[in-house]
Design a protein around this nucleic acid. Structure first.
Lengths: 217, 217
DNA sequence: TTATTTTTTTAGATTAATCTAAAAATTATA
DNA sequence: TATAATTTTTAGATTAATCTAAAAAAATAA
């Protein structure tokens, strides 16, 4: 059995693995979990002993098969609880995250499978993220390049094709993060650039950028 | 904010207060929580500092107003989750306790009040125990003296009228505890004694005892 | 009312998760 | 490639909850 804390580390590492292939750095985990790098190192040692991560000092970490399976099952729990809160208990989609963070750690196969069935086996959570199946499969979500949107359409930024450091730095400089809701305000036929808005700001992006941002809508 | 552990201590003390007016002893709490007396002493000091219990060394403890209010709200959570698990997720009434023990500690007024409303404001949990209201009121449950039952009727032992030490010792000697399901096998018109069965045992009780055992059915 | 038994508390350790400050390794820069 | 800056790790503490063993207090029995 793993503690809530261990599970949160696994989740954080898993989420990084979706963006950077290389794995998560100590500092990135510390930032994600709001803790100190030294605490992260301690925990990484522990998780490595339990065979949940691949860890080599001074290098990033990745999840083992076993670690990934745990991370995915917690994400399944999280997303199913979010659906429950929104669909059955009348929560708004932006109010459910913190509660789901707590509910996700309650470990009972029967609980979560019955919840799944009660909710009619939803495929997506209220934020549009796919809900892993009971066997840990993550159903592919149909995504569309931002460049394919037309004026006034919107979508949620979900994935980048080019995951070079330069590109990711460009995104972070412009506060474009996974999960950001983006609306196309205008499209310039001359150079195929886009004028987009998100989080109350407006940005002009090049065709190249628009082709690398994947959204779901 | 109180830890899960602190909340479990408060709950245990509360449950004792329902049976013994005097309050819970260190040992009784240790037994209820499956821990050691020394651990209990440590925690009692902590809870006393937080003003959640009335504690005087070597004497039993009782809850303060504040402590009782917390205990009752956790019991409310517990019982509402039990209703949810049985009514919505198809659990059996004897499978829900441990899960509810975990769910009860998730603190969100909105969560629990919306759950209450979703479940249509149930008055009783699947075991027949009353669900405290949002303001901490515990609705009276209709109970009946064992002496009022007729042959073959049954009920769950819920309350004692006479809570003298002698009587409680008599009950504990005969393993008659709150929550025990009792069936009337026979009634002797001569002296109004009852032959009852519970937990696969049979016992003859006097009229006096039968008049002091309150059951719900 | 003294002696014995039981209960409760204290003293001192342990474990998980965290922290600060300092040391070591790696990466970036000149 | 040497030096500076950054990142990561180690060393040593801290806090919450627990434990064992011993001491102290209260309850029970002789």
């Amino acid at each position: 059995m793993n503690s809530f804390t261990e599970e949160n580390y696994l989740k954080a590492i898993y989420k990084f693995s979706l963006v950077h292939e290389k794995g998560a750095s100590t500092n990135s985990i510390a930032k994600a979990l709001n803790t100190k790098a030294s605490s992260v190192t301690d925990m990484l040692k522990k998780l490595a002993i339990k065979n949940l991560i691949n860890y080599k000092k001074y290098y990033g970490v990745t999840l083992t098969e076993k670690g990934e399976q745990i991370a995915i099952s917690i994400i399944r729990n999280h997303r199913l609880w979010e659906v429950f809160l929104v669909e059955k208990l009348n929560f708004k989609w932006d109010e459910v995250h913190d509660l789901a963070e707590e509910l996700e750690h309650i470990k009972s196969e029967k609980l979560i499978n019955n919840l799944d069935s009660f909710l009619n086996f939803p495929a997506l959570d209220p934020h549009g993220d796919p809900i892993p199946t009971k066997n840990g499969k993550i159903r592919a979500v149909k995504m569309i390049k931002l460049s394919q949107l037309t004026i006034n359409e919107e979508g949620v930024f979900m994935h980048v094709k080019d995951s070079s450091d330069k590109f990711l730095k460009y995104l972070s400089k412009n506060k474009l993060e996974i999960g950001t809701k983006i609306k196309v305000l205008d499209k310039e036929p001359f150079d195929n650039s886009f004028k987009i808005s998100y989080n109350n700001q407006v940005l002009i992006i090049s065709e190249n950028v628009a082709k690398n941002l994947y959204l779901k809508n």
